[in-house]
């Protein structure tokens, strides 16, 4: 392979990648799914400040000591008060961070917006022949 050929392949791939990146940035969000209110954006920073992601996941991404929190606000039997209770008292594995009340409300607001954005883990789906899946709503 000559140097020229390699350079051409490299720069062709690179330009494809840049165009692709722009498309990815542009194509999300779809129908504004996942939009965060001003309070939720603050709540997100609180979520980061206490490093909740070290033990929890959103959409399956994060540490694995605790459960996925994506739908903790809209699962039957859970919800705002349930979440507040966990945050204020902690458990054997989850520390009590002594988070001030107003920060807890911001966290609740953030988790509420996350819950509305989608479902994780996905348990109701059909498997197609090519290995892809169709998610049942």
């Amino acid at each position: 392979m000559s140097r020229k050929t390699k350079q051409i392949i490299f720069f062709a791939l690179l330009s494809q990648f840049l165009i692709y990146s722009l498309f990815v940035y542009k194509s999300i969000p779809i129908n504004n799914v996942g939009t965060l209110s001003v309070n939720s954006q603050k709540g997100k920073l609180i979520f980061q400040k206490y490093n909740c992601i070290a033990c929890h996941q959103l959409y399956g991404l994060g540490g694995y000591m605790g459960p996925d929190l994506t739908n903790v606000m809209n699962t039957k039997g859970k919800g705002k008060d349930y979440v507040r209770a966990f945050i204020t008292s902690g458990t054997a594995k989850m520390p009590n961070f002594h988070i001030p009340q107003e920060e807890i409300e911001l966290l609740v607001s953030y988790l509420e917006d996350v819950s509305k954005s989608g479902v994780s883990p996905t348990v109701d789906f059909d498997i197609n022949k090519d290995g892809t899946v169709t998610i049942n709503k």
Binding site: V24, Y25, L36, Q41, L58, S117, G118
Partner: peptide, 14 residues
């Protein structure tokens, strides 16, 4: 980017 959790998550993993 920070106003949308889906966009943010997607880009972070990209």
């Amino acid at each position: 980017f920070k106003g949308n959790v889906i966009k943010e998550l997607t880009l972070q993993w990209k």
